[in-house]
């Protein structure tokens, strides 16, 4: 996975990671796209995305918060928060 250097690249990274896992065209994976509405989305796909994101970005998400996320934009926000928290705690 390409590693995003800054926060503003996180969304781009997310969209590509989601595309890789669900096969949804990047154009459809905008900030408002609902994860559950994407083709091939499942609880296993959700976990694949979670571990891909975590291993690539070096963050650790709270699974309860992650599972509550509904859109790509919300996930992006959760990820920024987590990166900040992880940075502070490290």
């Amino acid at each position: 996975m390409p590693e995003p250097a800054d926060d503003h690249e996180t969304l781009e990274f997310l969209r590509e990671a989601i595309r890789d896992i669900t096969d949804a065209p990047v154009e459809e994976v905008g900030p408002d796209a609902r994860l559950a509405a994407l083709g091939n989305w499942s609880s296993l796909a959700a976990l694949r995305l979670l571990t891909t994101i975590e291993d690539s970005l070096g963050v650790w998400l709270d699974l309860r918060e992650y599972l509550a996320v509904e859109t790509v934009g919300e996930l992006d926000t959760a990820l920024r928060d987590a990166r900040q928290t992880n940075d502070e705690s490290s």
């Binding site: 890789d20 694949r48 571990t51 291993d55």
Partner: peptide, 8 residues
């Protein structure tokens, strides 16, 4: 080498 890419 990335295991996620290899799985994908």
């Amino acid at each position: 080498a990335d295991v996620h890419v290899r799985a994908a």
